[in-house]
Nucleic acid binder design. Sequence first.
DNA 1: TTTTTTACTATTGTATACAATTATACAAAA
DNA 2: TTTTGTATAATTGTATACAATAGTAAAAAA
Lengths: 227, 227
Amino acid sequence: MRYDKPDEVGSSRPLHGKIFEKLESSILSGKYKYGDTLNEIKLAEEMGVSRTPVREALRQLELEGLVAYIPNKGVVVRGLSKEDIKDIYEIRLVIEGMTARRAAENITDEELAELKEYIELEEFYTARDDAKQLSRLDTCFHETIYKACGSRLLAKTLKAFHNYVKSVRDISLSSPERARETYLEHKAIYEAIRDRDRELAEILMEQHIRNATAFMEKQSLAADKVE
Amino acid sequence: MRYDKPDEVGSSRPLHGKIFEKLESSILSGKYKYGDTLNEIKLAEEMGVSRTPVREALRQLELEGLVAYIPNKGVVVRGLSKEDIKDIYEIRLVIEGMTARRAAENITDEELAELKEYIELEEFYTARDDAKQLSRLDTCFHETIYKACGSRLLAKTLKAFHNYVKSVRDISLSSPERARETYLEHKAIYEAIRDRDRELAEILMEQHIRNATAFMEKQSLAADKVE
DNA sequence: TTTTTTACTATTGTATACAATTATACAAAA
DNA sequence: TTTTGTATAATTGTATACAATAGTAAAAAA
């Protein structure tokens, strides 16, 4: 299946890519917190590689703003604050609708078929309350629309943002209530895009982001109360 | 000293940063075009350094999407297409107004004083038709607003986009007509932010981007005719 | 005791050596 | 002539050695 990346055994893909993904997800998941210092040598030893690919990965994380190099001193984790997360939803609200509109214009039949499959699988896993699968499908669904919008930069930007909020998304989708809503919203967006209804696709996507934001903030407030 | 380049005494800033900026501007300015291949060894020799810092810079450019590594083969330039540039203006139109509105809420007195100085200098250099200074001030003006908006991610995203369109901006600002309009638009935006008028700041900024886009496309069409 | 100096350690910054892989050229066979 | 195989060269991928710098602690001077 397409969304199920086969991990390519024996792939000669450079190490730094894997290291980058690992470190990035460790930061985004909160394993490495704001202010933590990372040690190139330690990281290299832990992963059984040399400093070189670790540094390449760290330099990319530096460009992303997730870590900061302090010359001759060390690497410090910056990560994303709660304000950053809120900002991401605010930005997504404004540009993700645009992306859906453009996708409705430019999407190919293949991409449309992809979307359809994701929707069907979402229905299946929603019935099963399989939050992990739903998280993956959510990523697939949105990224397909990003691609279909025909703008490389929009796709790149939104893919990064979408990835940044993965943690809170996972929490949301672990709620059967929100998972079901998400499925219905995705389905409506898909149908609008399928019918080439640009206006509707845009409006529905904006509403989708708005709903996701509202649910996220509700949960965030609840979590704050627990603390 | 070990390295050929004595360069600015006291600047212990890592080399890869300078290399990154140099390569990035070479790509954005069109010196390196789409499809060109870059050779790590050649670049290192040209700059009088080893491959290591060159690779770190290239890995960051890779993350930015300006170059692509083909494993064991080479580095190929991707750069930005005309469509990319248009997309950037389309995205900026939607999020830069948001930034101005937020800046009107959050700006500090210091940042406000900065903006004021930029405006005054813009007036000065507009009268002198000094396009180079005006380009610099345009960057300062917008980046100060990005900072003042209080969102790290918004600032980072827009700073990158603003940098990406530097070439076409420079062309626009070399037109005395557009330079004068730009000054007036900037001034109005500054005053709205100074007066903490969020709505007006947002509207004026959106209009500013709209005008810049229109001028850019007019020039682009004219350039196409010449070809 | 307090301050200053010095030596040492730890960490990043850079260069270089070597490994792995790809592309190319050339020769040999069909 | 075309195809196939092999050797060679070129380039990236990774590891390691060494340089430079910042931080720390200890020692010396006040």
